[in-house]
Protein backbone atom coordinates (compact mmCIF):
# COMPACT_ATOMS: atom_id res chain seq x y z
CA UNK A 1 0.00 0.00 0.00
CA UNK A 2 1.41 3.38 -0.92
CA UNK A 3 1.26 5.38 2.27
CA UNK A 4 1.13 8.56 0.27
CA UNK A 5 -2.39 7.74 -0.93
CA UNK A 6 -4.88 8.84 1.71
CA UNK A 7 -8.13 8.32 -0.19
CA UNK A 8 -8.47 5.38 -2.46
CA UNK A 9 -11.70 4.84 -4.36
CA UNK A 10 -11.76 1.44 -6.00
CA UNK A 11 -14.39 0.55 -8.57
CA UNK A 12 -17.40 1.79 -6.62
CA UNK A 13 -20.96 1.06 -7.68
CA UNK A 14 -24.09 2.44 -6.07
CA UNK A 15 -27.70 2.29 -7.24
CA UNK A 16 -30.89 3.67 -5.78
CA UNK A 17 -33.48 1.23 -7.08
CA UNK A 18 -32.91 1.40 -10.80
CA UNK A 19 -31.07 4.74 -10.76
CA UNK A 20 -27.41 3.91 -11.22
CA UNK A 21 -25.75 6.74 -9.36
CA UNK A 22 -22.21 5.36 -9.52
CA UNK A 23 -20.97 2.81 -12.03
CA UNK A 24 -17.40 1.87 -11.36
CA UNK A 25 -15.67 4.96 -10.05
CA UNK A 26 -11.96 4.77 -9.20
CA UNK A 27 -9.40 7.40 -8.29
CA UNK A 28 -6.77 8.16 -5.71
CA UNK A 29 -5.94 11.21 -3.65
CA UNK A 30 -2.40 11.84 -2.35
CA UNK A 31 -2.02 13.02 1.24
CA UNK A 32 -2.07 16.78 1.68
CA UNK A 33 -3.58 17.63 -1.70
CA UNK A 34 -6.88 19.11 -2.83
CA UNK A 35 -8.99 17.06 -5.17
CA UNK A 36 -11.87 18.65 -7.03
CA UNK A 37 -14.79 16.43 -7.96
CA UNK A 38 -16.63 17.94 -10.89
CA UNK A 39 -19.72 16.82 -12.68
CA UNK A 40 -23.11 18.05 -13.85
CA UNK A 41 -26.21 17.76 -11.64
CA UNK A 42 -27.00 14.16 -10.84
CA UNK A 43 -23.53 12.93 -11.82
CA UNK A 44 -23.13 11.14 -8.49
CA UNK A 45 -20.86 13.54 -6.58
CA UNK A 46 -22.91 13.66 -3.40
CA UNK A 47 -23.42 9.91 -3.50
CA UNK A 48 -19.66 9.41 -3.64
CA UNK A 49 -19.02 11.89 -0.82
CA UNK A 50 -21.65 10.11 1.28
CA UNK A 51 -19.94 6.78 0.70
CA UNK A 52 -16.54 8.19 1.63
CA UNK A 53 -17.93 9.75 4.80
CA UNK A 54 -19.60 6.47 5.92
CA UNK A 55 -23.16 7.71 5.41
CA UNK A 56 -23.83 5.21 2.64
CA UNK A 57 -22.47 1.78 1.84
CA UNK A 58 -21.38 1.05 -1.72
CA UNK A 59 -23.08 -1.84 -3.54
CA UNK A 60 -19.76 -2.95 -4.97
CA UNK A 61 -16.13 -1.90 -4.78
CA UNK A 62 -14.45 -0.33 -1.80
CA UNK A 63 -13.11 2.92 -0.52
CA UNK A 64 -10.13 3.29 1.78
CA UNK A 65 -9.37 6.29 3.96
CA UNK A 66 -5.83 6.09 5.35
CA UNK A 67 -5.96 2.44 4.38
CA UNK A 68 -9.15 1.82 6.41
CA UNK A 69 -12.16 0.41 4.59
CA UNK A 70 -15.00 2.90 5.12
CA UNK A 71 -17.70 0.25 4.92
CA UNK A 72 -15.97 -2.15 7.31
CA UNK A 73 -14.66 0.18 9.99
CA UNK A 74 -16.75 3.31 9.73
CA UNK A 75 -16.15 4.45 13.30
CA UNK A 76 -12.39 4.48 12.77
CA UNK A 77 -12.87 6.57 9.68
CA UNK A 78 -15.21 9.05 11.37
CA UNK A 79 -12.63 10.26 13.84
CA UNK A 80 -10.35 11.25 10.95
CA UNK A 81 -12.76 13.09 8.72
CA UNK A 82 -14.81 16.23 8.64
CA UNK A 83 -17.86 16.69 6.43
CA UNK A 84 -19.76 19.72 5.26
CA UNK A 85 -22.61 18.25 3.25
CA UNK A 86 -24.34 19.80 0.28
CA UNK A 87 -27.08 21.34 2.42
CA UNK A 88 -25.90 23.25 5.47
CA UNK A 89 -26.63 21.13 8.54
CA UNK A 90 -26.96 23.52 11.43
CA UNK A 91 -29.33 23.30 14.36
CA UNK A 92 -31.59 26.30 13.95
CA UNK A 93 -32.46 26.48 17.61
CA UNK A 94 -28.88 26.72 18.75
CA UNK A 95 -26.61 29.73 18.43
CA UNK A 96 -23.56 29.62 16.19
CA UNK A 97 -21.34 29.04 19.19
CA UNK A 98 -23.55 26.26 20.57
CA UNK A 99 -23.62 24.52 17.19
CA UNK A 100 -19.85 24.48 16.99
CA UNK A 101 -19.43 23.43 20.60
CA UNK A 102 -21.92 20.58 20.18
CA UNK A 103 -19.99 19.17 17.25
CA UNK A 104 -16.70 19.65 19.12
CA UNK A 105 -18.09 17.79 22.14
CA UNK A 106 -19.22 14.95 19.91
CA UNK A 107 -15.63 14.66 18.62
CA UNK A 108 -14.81 14.03 22.31
CA UNK A 109 -12.48 16.99 22.61
CA UNK A 110 -11.75 18.40 26.07
CA UNK A 111 -14.18 21.11 27.12
CA UNK A 112 -11.59 23.90 27.17
CA UNK A 113 -10.24 22.91 23.78
CA UNK A 114 -13.76 22.96 22.31
CA UNK A 115 -14.21 26.55 23.47
CA UNK A 116 -10.88 27.72 22.16
CA UNK A 117 -11.41 26.13 18.76
CA UNK A 118 -15.00 27.34 18.49
CA UNK A 119 -13.97 30.91 19.22
CA UNK A 120 -11.13 30.75 16.71
CA UNK A 121 -13.34 29.29 13.97
CA UNK A 122 -16.09 31.84 14.54
CA UNK A 123 -13.50 34.54 14.05
CA UNK A 124 -11.98 32.90 11.02
CA UNK A 125 -15.39 32.57 9.39
CA UNK A 126 -16.43 36.15 10.23
CA UNK A 127 -19.28 35.04 12.45
CA UNK A 128 -18.22 36.83 15.63
CA UNK A 129 -21.08 39.31 15.43
CA UNK A 130 -23.62 36.51 15.37
CA UNK A 131 -22.14 34.03 17.87
CA UNK A 132 -24.98 34.31 20.33
CA UNK A 133 -27.82 34.47 17.84
CA UNK A 134 -30.01 31.50 16.98
CA UNK A 135 -28.88 30.26 13.59
CA UNK A 136 -32.52 30.47 12.49
CA UNK A 137 -31.78 34.17 12.01
CA UNK A 138 -28.65 33.54 9.90
CA UNK A 139 -28.50 34.25 6.20
CA UNK A 140 -27.88 31.35 3.82
CA UNK A 141 -24.22 32.28 3.46
CA UNK A 142 -23.75 32.52 7.23
CA UNK A 143 -25.23 29.06 7.71
CA UNK A 144 -22.97 27.70 5.03
CA UNK A 145 -19.94 29.20 6.74
CA UNK A 146 -21.01 27.85 10.12
CA UNK A 147 -21.52 24.43 8.56
CA UNK A 148 -18.03 24.44 7.08
CA UNK A 149 -16.63 25.70 10.39
CA UNK A 150 -18.35 22.77 12.19
CA UNK A 151 -16.65 20.33 9.87
CA UNK A 152 -13.29 21.79 10.92
CA UNK A 153 -13.65 21.77 14.69
CA UNK A 154 -12.37 18.23 14.97
CA UNK A 155 -9.26 19.26 13.00
CA UNK A 156 -9.76 16.33 10.65
CA UNK A 157 -7.00 14.79 8.57
CA UNK A 158 -9.35 14.68 5.63
CA UNK A 159 -12.02 17.20 4.87
CA UNK A 160 -14.98 16.55 2.59
CA UNK A 161 -16.77 19.61 1.28
CA UNK A 162 -19.82 19.11 -0.92
CA UNK A 163 -20.28 22.35 -2.85
CA UNK A 164 -18.89 24.45 -0.01
CA UNK A 165 -19.10 27.79 -1.78
CA UNK A 166 -22.53 27.47 -3.34
CA UNK A 167 -24.54 30.46 -2.18
CA UNK A 168 -21.58 32.41 -0.85
CA UNK A 169 -20.91 35.97 -1.95
CA UNK A 170 -17.58 36.59 -3.73
CA UNK A 171 -15.88 37.90 -0.59
CA UNK A 172 -16.92 34.91 1.54
CA UNK A 173 -15.92 32.59 -1.27
CA UNK A 174 -12.43 34.07 -1.41
CA UNK A 175 -12.15 33.84 2.36
CA UNK A 176 -13.16 30.19 2.30
CA UNK A 177 -10.64 29.50 -0.47
CA UNK A 178 -7.95 31.05 1.69
CA UNK A 179 -9.02 28.96 4.68
CA UNK A 180 -8.91 25.81 2.59
CA UNK A 181 -5.46 26.67 1.25
CA UNK A 182 -4.30 27.33 4.78
CA UNK A 183 -5.55 23.93 5.90
CA UNK A 184 -3.79 22.20 3.06
CA UNK A 185 -0.56 23.99 3.93
CA UNK A 186 -0.90 22.47 7.40
CA UNK A 187 -1.26 19.01 5.87
CA UNK A 188 -5.02 18.48 5.61
CA UNK A 189 -6.27 16.59 2.59
CA UNK A 190 -9.36 18.10 0.99
CA UNK A 191 -11.90 16.57 -1.36
CA UNK A 192 -14.39 19.10 -2.61
CA UNK A 193 -17.16 19.03 -5.14
CA UNK A 194 -18.04 22.17 -6.97
CA UNK A 195 -20.16 23.57 -9.73
CA UNK A 196 -17.65 26.38 -10.28
CA UNK A 197 -14.94 25.39 -12.69
CA UNK A 198 -13.08 28.53 -11.82
CA UNK A 199 -12.96 27.26 -8.25
CA UNK A 200 -11.59 23.89 -9.31
CA UNK A 201 -9.09 25.61 -11.56
CA UNK A 202 -7.88 27.96 -8.86
CA UNK A 203 -8.00 25.73 -5.81
CA UNK A 204 -7.46 22.11 -6.66
CA UNK A 205 -4.34 20.11 -7.42
CA UNK A 206 -6.18 17.45 -9.33
CA UNK A 207 -9.60 17.22 -10.84
CA UNK A 208 -11.81 14.19 -11.36
CA UNK A 209 -14.70 14.75 -13.71
CA UNK A 210 -17.61 12.36 -13.35
CA UNK A 211 -20.68 12.12 -15.50
CA UNK A 212 -23.56 9.70 -15.12
CA UNK A 213 -21.71 7.78 -12.45
CA UNK A 214 -18.49 7.28 -14.39
CA UNK A 215 -15.13 9.02 -14.34
CA UNK A 216 -14.79 10.69 -17.72
CA UNK A 217 -11.45 12.39 -17.13
CA UNK A 218 -8.93 13.11 -14.43
CA UNK A 219 -5.73 15.04 -14.09
CA UNK A 220 -4.49 18.50 -13.24
CA UNK A 221 -6.43 21.35 -14.71
CA UNK A 222 -3.54 21.87 -17.14
CA UNK A 223 -3.61 18.25 -18.26
CA UNK A 224 -7.36 18.39 -18.72
CA UNK A 225 -7.11 21.51 -20.82
CA UNK A 226 -4.64 19.83 -23.12
CA UNK A 227 -6.93 16.82 -23.57
CA UNK A 228 -8.85 18.78 -26.13
CA UNK A 229 -5.73 19.12 -28.14
CA UNK A 230 -4.35 22.37 -29.38
CA UNK A 231 -7.16 24.51 -28.21
CA UNK A 232 -10.38 25.94 -29.46
CA UNK A 233 -11.35 27.97 -32.45
CA UNK A 234 -13.63 30.84 -31.69
CA UNK A 235 -15.59 32.20 -34.64
CA UNK A 236 -17.58 35.42 -34.40
CA UNK A 237 -20.30 35.72 -37.04
CA UNK A 238 -21.08 39.16 -38.41
CA UNK A 239 -24.82 38.58 -38.21
CA UNK A 240 -26.10 36.72 -35.12
CA UNK A 241 -28.88 35.22 -37.24
CA UNK A 242 -26.29 33.04 -38.91
CA UNK A 243 -25.15 31.10 -35.87
CA UNK A 244 -27.27 28.04 -36.67
CA UNK A 245 -26.24 28.12 -40.32
CA UNK A 246 -22.61 28.24 -39.26
CA UNK A 247 -22.97 25.28 -36.88
CA UNK A 248 -24.57 23.30 -39.70
CA UNK A 249 -21.94 24.33 -42.22
CA UNK A 250 -19.06 23.37 -39.93
CA UNK A 251 -20.57 19.94 -39.33
CA UNK A 252 -18.02 19.02 -36.64
CA UNK A 253 -18.15 17.16 -33.36
CA UNK A 254 -18.78 19.20 -30.24
CA UNK A 255 -19.40 22.79 -31.30
CA UNK A 256 -20.61 25.26 -28.73
CA UNK A 257 -22.89 28.03 -29.86
CA UNK A 258 -23.43 31.30 -28.04
CA UNK A 259 -26.48 32.78 -29.67
CA UNK A 260 -26.46 36.00 -27.72
CA UNK A 261 -22.94 36.95 -28.67
CA UNK A 262 -22.96 35.28 -32.07
CA UNK A 263 -19.96 33.11 -31.27
CA UNK A 264 -19.37 29.51 -32.25
CA UNK A 265 -16.53 27.62 -30.59
CA UNK A 266 -15.12 24.33 -31.82
CA UNK A 267 -12.38 22.15 -30.41
CA UNK A 268 -9.22 21.88 -32.46
CA UNK A 269 -7.36 18.58 -32.55
CA UNK A 270 -3.62 18.96 -32.61
CA UNK A 271 -1.92 18.35 -35.92
CA UNK A 272 -5.08 18.73 -37.96
CA UNK A 273 -5.83 21.34 -40.53
CA UNK A 274 -8.88 22.51 -38.62
CA UNK A 275 -8.21 26.19 -39.18
CA UNK A 276 -7.89 26.04 -42.94
CA UNK A 277 -10.69 23.51 -43.26
CA UNK A 278 -12.96 25.68 -41.17
CA UNK A 279 -12.30 28.74 -43.24
CA UNK A 280 -13.00 26.79 -46.42
CA UNK A 281 -16.32 25.59 -45.00
CA UNK A 282 -17.31 29.09 -43.93
CA UNK A 283 -16.52 30.41 -47.41
CA UNK A 284 -18.45 27.61 -49.06
CA UNK A 285 -21.51 28.37 -46.94
CA UNK A 286 -21.08 32.03 -47.71
CA UNK A 287 -21.36 33.15 -44.08
CA UNK A 288 -19.78 36.45 -43.17
CA UNK A 289 -17.60 36.41 -40.08
CA UNK A 290 -16.21 39.31 -38.09
CA UNK A 291 -13.44 37.50 -36.25
CA UNK A 292 -11.78 34.12 -35.92
CA UNK A 293 -9.36 33.24 -33.15
CA UNK A 294 -7.40 30.16 -32.08
CA UNK A 295 -6.93 30.00 -28.30
CA UNK A 296 -6.36 27.72 -25.30
CA UNK A 297 -9.54 26.13 -23.96
CA UNK A 298 -10.99 27.14 -20.61
CA UNK A 299 -11.84 24.50 -18.04
CA UNK A 300 -15.51 25.14 -18.78
CA UNK A 301 -14.95 24.06 -22.35
CA UNK A 302 -13.14 20.94 -21.24
CA UNK A 303 -16.01 20.20 -18.91
CA UNK A 304 -18.69 20.73 -21.54
CA UNK A 305 -16.72 18.75 -24.08
CA UNK A 306 -16.34 15.81 -21.71
CA UNK A 307 -19.76 15.75 -20.14
CA UNK A 308 -21.51 16.42 -23.42
CA UNK A 309 -23.86 18.98 -21.96
CA UNK A 310 -25.04 21.97 -23.89
CA UNK A 311 -24.04 20.40 -27.18
CA UNK A 312 -26.51 21.64 -29.76
CA UNK A 313 -28.45 18.69 -31.07
CA UNK A 314 -27.59 18.23 -34.76
CA UNK A 315 -30.48 19.22 -37.03
Amino acid sequence: MESNIIISVEDIYKSYGNVHALEGVSFQVPRGSILGLLGPNGAGKTTLVNILTTLLKPDKGRALISGIDVARQPSKVRSRIGLAGQFAAVDENLTGKENLELVGTLYHLPRAEVRVRARRLLEEFSLTDAVNRKTKTYSGGMRRRLDVASSLIGEPEILFLDEPTTGLDPKSRLELWETIEGLVRKGTTVLLTTQYLEEADYLTDRIVIIDQGKVVAQGTSKELKSTIGGGVLEIHVADKQHVVALVEALNVFGPHADFALGIVTIPVKEGTKTLSETIRKIDAANIEISDIELRKPTLDEVFLELTGNNRPVPK
Binding site: N50, T53, T54, L55, S75, R78, S79, I81, G82, L83, G85, F87, A88, A89, V90, D91, E92, V103, L106, Y107, H108, S150, G154
Partner: peptide, 13 residues
Protein backbone atom coordinates in the same frame (compact mmCIF):
# COMPACT_ATOMS: atom_id res chain seq x y z
CA UNK B 1 -34.95 16.66 6.78
CA UNK B 2 -32.40 19.33 7.67
CA UNK B 3 -29.39 17.03 7.29
CA UNK B 4 -28.53 17.09 11.01
CA UNK B 5 -28.71 13.31 11.17
CA UNK B 6 -26.18 13.10 8.33
CA UNK B 7 -23.87 15.39 10.23
CA UNK B 8 -24.21 13.24 13.38
CA UNK B 9 -23.61 10.07 11.41
CA UNK B 10 -20.34 11.40 10.07
CA UNK B 11 -19.08 12.16 13.59
CA UNK B 12 -17.22 9.68 15.80
CA UNK B 13 -20.05 9.89 18.35
Amino acid sequence: GKGMIDRFRSLPM
